Amino acid sequence: MGAADVVPGVSGGTIAFITGILDTLLNSVRKINPSLIDVIRKQGLKAAFIHVNGTFLGVLLAGILTSIFTLAKLISWLLSHHPIPVWSFFFGLIIISVIHMLKQVQGITPARVILFIAGILFAWAITILNPIALQPTYLNIMIAGSIAICAMVLPGISGSFILLLMGLYTPILGAVKSLDVAIIMCFACGALFGILTFSHLLSAMLRRWHDATLVFLTGLMLGTLGKIWPWKQTLTWRTNSRGEQVPLVQENLLPNQFLEVTGHEPQIVFAVAAMLAGIMLVWGLEKFAAD
């Protein structure tokens, strides 16, 4: 989840769903509410820790942070130097994940088809929005944190891409790099508020309208495929926290167009191999979970 969350266009929530931990994550976070105070008062901290599935949350958080501080640099380097295989890998990952999710839906109805299409259109609309430039005030940072964290646990929507759209991706990464405690704490407070409120909503929807919610979430995932299409032409650039020029607005191209427009090889063989690797990874996880 941590590795996926640092890539604009890929959702950590997708990884959570693929690995089968999304329901457990939502249910665990949902238990962090005012009633937890009564549990602490009557039964103690150990009981409260067990009540919120603290071991699971602790291990998950440790894994996310470890991935961010270890794999993030590797993924950033790969995106800069070998973007086509990396995006192809995630493309295959999303395609097989869509199939995996649809297999869990019990029957297709006209209403579910409409929800599926709505999810696709909603995600697609987000991916083609032009970034805005919000000022990195404490209030904006807190709002960004609450919105981004919701996207990070929602399959199909990338939290880092939401930050890009808000124009706050670079300031927040810069704050993390420079250890700007004030900005980090504002973002963390917003993220905490967002996850505690949104987890209740998403968990309730999955309990009451499981298949309908699943279909909509699957549409969200499918709608982001345009964002992670491997062959792109960069139209505008942005400056990251290290002062480097990185792509901001891009246009999708066919492999033969990519060669004509950019003069670079489309690396079709590597792209197909990486895509198959992504597909096999999810297929393997599905088989492992079944066993």
Score class of each variant (00 low, 15 high):
W209D: 09
L179T: 13
I147H: 01
F161R: 01
M142Q: 04
L201I: 15
G194T: 07
L201D: 10
A204D: 10
G119Q: 05
I157Q: 06
A204M: 10
P171K: 00
A123E: 04
I117H: 04
A182S: 12
A148F: 08
C189F: 15
G194K: 05
V153K: 02
L102M: 13
I172D: 05
S178N: 14
I157F: 11
L196V: 11
I149Q: 03
G190A: 04
R208W: 14
A191R: 01
L173G: 02
A118K: 08
I132A: 13
L179S: 15
I132W: 15
P136F: 02
S178Y: 12
F91R: 03
A125Q: 06
G194Q: 02
L206S: 06
S158W: 06
W124L: 05
G107I: 11
M152R: 00
F116P: 10
L121P: 14
G167N: 08
I117Y: 08
I147P: 01
M101P: 01
P131Q: 06
G159L: 02
F116K: 02
G107Y: 12
V176A: 12
L192K: 06
Q135A: 14
S199N: 10
P171M: 03
I114T: 11
I120L: 08
T127S: 10
V176F: 15
V181K: 10
L102V: 11
N130R: 13
S88F: 10
P131V: 03
I143C: 01
G156H: 02
G159S: 10
F161N: 07
I184V: 12
L121C: 13
G145Y: 08
C186I: 00
H200L: 14
L168H: 01
F90S: 04
A123V: 08
L164R: 03
F122S: 07
I128A: 05
I120W: 04
N130A: 14
F116R: 01
A118H: 09
A182M: 15
A133V: 09
I128L: 08
I114H: 06
W209N: 12
L154H: 05
M152W: 02
F122T: 08
I184A: 08
A204F: 15
L154P: 15
G107C: 13
Q135V: 14
S160H: 03
I128E: 08
L139M: 11
G156V: 05
F161K: 03
L115Y: 13
G156I: 00
F122Y: 12
Q135W: 09
I128P: 04
F198Y: 15
K103F: 08
F187G: 00
I149H: 02
G190V: 00
K103W: 03
T170E: 11
L179H: 15
L206Y: 07
I132N: 06
G174T: 00
V105E: 04
L201Y: 15
F116N: 00
H200V: 13
N140P: 10
V176N: 08
A111L: 11
F116H: 03
L206Q: 04
L154G: 09
G92Y: 05
P136I: 00
P136A: 01
L173N: 14
A111K: 13
I96K: 03
D180A: 12
L115P: 13
I94A: 03
C150T: 12
A182F: 14
F193M: 10
G194S: 08
W87P: 00
A148K: 03
F187M: 06
Q135L: 13
V153D: 09
V113R: 11
P171C: 10
I132R: 05
I157T: 09
S158A: 09
G92A: 00
I143E: 02
F89E: 00
S199C: 11
